[in-house]
Design a protein around this nucleic acid. Structure first.
Lengths: 221, 221
DNA sequence: TGCAAGCCTTAAGCCAGTCTTAAGCAGGCC
DNA sequence: GGCCTGCTTAAGACTGGCTTAAGGCTTGCA
């Protein structure tokens, strides 16, 4: 799950990036508002972590531009304890949640998961599809109740597909979400991961849409 | 906007109801989890405000029942400051947000608005024409409820025709849409695809307009 | 610091399904 | 009746995806 972190503080940014990466997110980090807007117009992210106190262009203004351009990406605001007013303005400007600094990394991860989940119009925590159950929090997958070990990339890929059950995800979208900048693949790595998923979970689950991408059918409950 | 408040504390409940009503919400208030589930199965709410510490059936259990029944209503959890663990469990069980007591009523209202706004952001219209249903997102087509496998070009063609139901699409328009520049066909490929579509979906759907192009009649619903 | 294990990427060959082409046929219109 | 447009069918080319295997990289552990 690819996240854009907008944070000017080097220390904090470093910690958040490391922590979230450890929780299975892919984190791209920019230091100011202009860079954030540039990144958001060029790439697609599952969510944005936005610090309000930024140099040059402040967080609220970034948020406002984003929303007035019609971009619906979920935004989680990072705010200091004494900025309650800003926080409320942020929510009304279209932020989806906020956390107060200092915050707990586990909590931040949980909130991000909730946010992304919500933004996709689904409110259930674990993703179910027939015999396959994926638990995003525990990073575990079961097939007919039996645990299946997936590697990191396999897990991310499966989660995206299940999240979007019923919709086709293009190669491009999958690759963008799977890889942060500077690690773009130019091979068939995606296909290889799909292949591994099929081997572990059966060939029925993931359908190929030739020339477009992959999808998992609408979930049978 | 109609909200269900689940709160056993009379004083707090009263305050929230009054405050939110003042902010333009319509608030139904129940005192325990069973009543909440009953209300939710009978009526429809834009969101639920759920206190975790309830008599009889506690909040997390209410949330779990709700989600396992597939109910996607946005849930905002009300929690005490010392229940961080519950809060995280709540988020992972499918809550969409929480606030810590004591909370500010304006903030609560702002969060509710953000929540509801977020929950309504999704609808991808499928194209229907009598027995034929085309889902652009899933790239699937059904005939009388049965899935039909179309190839890429067939699918694109059908989508164009359904999109323009009631209007004739000329050969020229169809070919331009179907083929990128530089790969113009100089054969009867279009006719062949139409033929395949008819074979798969029945000959009635697509009408030939001699000398002009093809059309699908105005959609019967 | 060195080793081992596992993960990810890369690359190459193979296969299947898709698309195009083309030729013959049917039917409408002048 | 002759011409023209569209239908049908089948064959071949080709693209894109699948599979497999090897090598490099990271990470954990001694």
């Amino acid at each position: 799950m690819r996240i854009l972190l907008v944070e000017d503080d080097r220390l904090l940014g470093d910690g958040v990036q490391a922590g979230l990466t450890g929780s299975g997110f892919t984190v791209d980090w920019v230091r100011d508002g202009d860079a954030a807007l540039a990144a958001l117009s060029a790439e697609s992210f599952a969510a944005v972590l936005l610090d309000l106190g930024l140099p040059k262009r402040d967080g609220l203004s970034v948020l406002a531009s984003l929303r007035s351009a019609g971009n619906p990406v979920p935004v989680l605001v990072l705010t200091a304890r004494d900025q309650v007013a800003d926080k409320i303005r942020g929510l009304d400007l279209g932020a989806d949640d906020y956390v107060i600094k200092p915050f707990d990394l586990d909590e931040l991860a949980a909130r991000l998961r909730a946010l992304v989940r919500r933004s996709q119009g689904r409110a259930d925590a674990s993703l179910r599809h027939g015999d396959v159950v994926l638990d995003p929090a525990g990073r575990t997958v079961k097939l007919k109740g039996e645990p299946v070990t997936l590697t990191g990339k396999e897990f991310d890929l499966l989660r995206m597909l299940l999240d979007a059950a019923g919709r086709v995800l293009t190669r491009r979208v999958l690759e963008e979400q799977l890889y942060a900048w500077g690690e773009a693949v130019e091979s068939n790595a995606l296909e290889v991961h799909i292949h591994h998923l099929r081997r572990k979970l059966g060939g029925e689950l993931i359908r190929t849409v030739r020339g477009v991408g992959y999808l998992v059918d609408e979930a049978p409950r």
